[in-house]
Write a protein that binds this DNA or RNA. Structure first.
Lengths: 228, 228
DNA sequence: CTTTGGAATGGTACTGAGTACCACAAGACT
DNA sequence: AGTCTTGTGGTACTCAGTACCATTCCAAAG
């Protein structure tokens, strides 16, 4: 244990110093010195000062990419859920480290911005995947893909932040529930109908809602023509 | 016309140079020199090199804030739509300038990141507004607010980018349509029911979809209990 | 007309992130 | 022995952004 890698020592030193003096008040020189290495070595291990806080963001992106591409058509939505769960699990694995990072990013706007940019990369990945999966090059399909990607990512962030703040005892269950809620928002891709040539579905509800107000949404959801 | 403000000259010079040599290859000194002012003056007018590309982002944010706060409870969703339209109109007003900026941000990752961060600020504004409007401090309500904000912003970006790429002849109509589509995703906040104590609504559809697959979504949409 | 006072400007010097390059040391393989 | 790789430290540079000071210009007040 006398020889943790220089990389690890740098990360350690960075977190300590950021806690002690704050992010802006800490220079890369400070970090390198405290880690007992040269300044050059710092930049060899981390592309930038911010990078020392988000080291495995690239690896995580690749993880998602892999999970998404290992997918048959029918399980696309499962793949999305899985990929999201993967990210959550990664953070949970980090445990306290993730929470310290969260505390930092909450205070330092430069880090917050950096995180936002990272999240946007995830979102882009999801958007492309969903778009490909839908196949439909239509304008409206493209919009739907964008909306789904945005929603999936938003849901993930929501649950993740709750856990980071210590407000969620069972984040995995919460994530699953949130993902279910999100996917319920979007009418499935015309999965091959169980009843080949279209059957008649009757739904009876007790509700105070006016039917006319609901019709557009219903039509979108079901895709059939209401008989009234 | 012999005396455009230094600020305007700087912006002009910046765009020309960015086009000519690219963003990274242009220093602030270059811009200042070309504009015929000192380097100090540049930073007096623009906080950073990136800022010269996105000058009125702050003003735009304030515009949205204002539109959102000038709202009575019943028109919240209208306010959201209006605010989004406001942003779109701003870009359309800029016309060619907006398109040049888009061309730049498409090539230069630093600018793209900067733009993403700006968009996140809008999203945050919408999220807070929607959350306040719903009033409900529930976990699930908070998630819904987040999802709505993300979707609204995603829809806006979608249409805006289409217009920037010259793919949309009538962006305003498209935006309205997109917003309608987005808001249709989310069941309205239990608007006071037309039928006071809950009536029975019967919907008959011709559809190949399996009813069981739809039930969760239907239940969410209508909020009543299906009788089957 | 002169004075005063504020606003915009230019210059100079500094900090600190990030890059380029070179030189050196410690194994590892032949 | 040598050579090749890999990790390292150091030095020097560019450039964004900040701080400070001195100047100029203009306008209102005397």
């Amino acid at each position: 244990m006398s020889k943790p890698t220089a990389r690890a020592r740098l990360a350690q030193a960075a977190f300590v110093l950021f806690d002690e003096r704050g992010y802006e008040q800490t220079t890369v020189d400070d970090i390198a010195e405290r880690a007992g290495v040269g300044r050059t070595t710092f930049f060899r291990h981390y592309r930038s000062k911010e990078d020392v806080i988000f080291p495995d963001h690239d690896r995580l992106l690749q993880l998602i990419r892999d999970r998404l591409s290992a997918t048959s058509n029918s399980t696309a939505l499962v793949a999305v859920s899985d990929a999201v769960r993967l990210v959550l699990l990664h953070y949970i694995d980090e445990g306290d480290l993730a929470r310290r990072r969260y505390a930092l990013t909450s205070k330092v706007s430069a880090l917050r911005d950096r995180e936002i940019v990272s999240v946007a990369r995830y979102q882009r990945l999801f958007r492309e995947f969903i778009s490909d999966w839908m196949g439909d090059p239509t304008e409206s399909a493209s919009l739907r893909a964008e909306l789904m990607a945005a929603s999936v990512v938003a849901a993930h962030n929501h649950v993740l932040r709750r856990w980071l703040r210590g407000e969620s005892p069972d984040p995995i269950a919460e994530m699953d529930e949130a993902m279910r809620e999100v996917l319920a928002l979007f009418p499935g891709p015309r999965s091959r109908p169980r009843v080949a040539d279209g059957g008649t579905t009757v739904a009876v509800f007790r509700t105070g809602e006016d039917l006319d107000a609901l019709l557009p949404a219903l039509r979108r959801l079901i895709g059939g023509e209401p008989e009234r």
